Amino acid sequence: MMPFDHETVVGFAKSFGLFYLIILSSICLAWTYWPSNKKGFDEAAQMPVSEGEDRPWR
């Protein structure tokens, strides 16, 4: 049985955190570059300039 001490927990947390961030980054990149999401990103990019309002908020 593996000892349950501080060093073991820290090592597990570092390893799990590394794999978690790699998987999360891969999912974010795949979602960003998925071809069917292009239209939504293009609309969001044009939203600030397409509203036509060129005046202060108040």
Rank of each mutant, 00 (worst) to 15 (best):
Ala13Glu: 05
Glu7Ile: 06
Met2Trp: 07
Gln46Glu: 10
Ser15Ala: 11
His6Glu: 13
Gln46Leu: 12
Tyr33Ile: 04
Phe19Thr: 06
Ala30Thr: 02
Glu7Pro: 01
Phe41Asp: 00
Thr8His: 06
Asp54Val: 15
Phe12Val: 15
Lys14Tyr: 10
Ala30Ile: 05
Phe12Trp: 15
Asn37Ile: 03
Leu29Asn: 04
Gly52Ser: 05
Asp54Tyr: 13
Trp57Thr: 12
Trp57Pro: 00
Val9Ile: 15
Ile27Phe: 09
Gly11Gln: 10
Ser50Pro: 01
Ser26Met: 11
Ala44Trp: 07
Leu18Asp: 12
Asp5Glu: 13
Leu18Pro: 01
Ile22Phe: 15
Leu29Tyr: 08
Ser50Tyr: 01
Ile27Ser: 06
Asp5Pro: 00
Trp34Lys: 11
Pro35Trp: 02
Leu24Ser: 11
Phe16Tyr: 13
Met2Cys: 04
Glu51His: 12
Val10Met: 06
Gly11Val: 10
Asp54Leu: 12
Trp31Asn: 05
Lys39Pro: 00
Lys39Gln: 07
Trp57Glu: 12
Trp57Leu: 14
Thr32Gly: 05
Glu43Thr: 12
His6Ser: 08
Ala30Met: 05
Pro3Ala: 13
Phe4Tyr: 07
Glu7Asn: 10
Gly40Lys: 07
Val49Ala: 12
His6Ile: 15
Gly17Arg: 07
Lys38Met: 03
Ile27Ala: 11
Ser50Phe: 01
Ser36Asp: 04
Gly11Cys: 07
Pro48Lys: 14
Ala13Asp: 01
Asp42Gln: 13
Ala45Ile: 09
Met47Ser: 14
Ile27Asn: 03
Lys39His: 03
Arg58Pro: 08
Tyr33Leu: 14
Pro48Gln: 14
Ala30Val: 06
Asn37Lys: 02
Met47Pro: 00
Met1Asp: 05
Met1Thr: 03
Arg55Met: 01
Gly17Cys: 08
Pro35Asn: 03
Ser25Gly: 14
Ile22Lys: 15
Ile22Met: 15
Val49Asp: 07
Thr8Glu: 03
Lys39Leu: 03
Ile27Gln: 02
Val49His: 03
Met47Asn: 07
Glu51Cys: 05
Leu21Glu: 08
Gly40Leu: 06
Tyr20Asn: 13
Ile27Leu: 15
Glu53Asn: 06
Tyr20Val: 10
Glu43Gly: 02
Ala13Phe: 02
Gly52Asn: 01
Pro48Arg: 14
Phe16Cys: 04
Ala13Tyr: 00
Arg58Ala: 15
Glu53His: 11
Asp54Asn: 11
Phe19Asp: 06
Thr8Gln: 05
Glu51Ile: 11
Ser50Arg: 11
Lys38Phe: 01
Asp42Lys: 11
Tyr20Ile: 08
Ile23Trp: 09
Trp34Tyr: 11
Lys14Phe: 15
Ala45Val: 08
Gly40Thr: 06
Leu29Trp: 03
Val9Cys: 07
Arg58Gln: 14
Asn37Ala: 07
Glu7Ala: 15
Trp34Pro: 05
Ala13Thr: 09
Ile23Glu: 08
Phe16Ile: 04
Met47Thr: 03
Asp5Leu: 09
Ile23Ser: 08
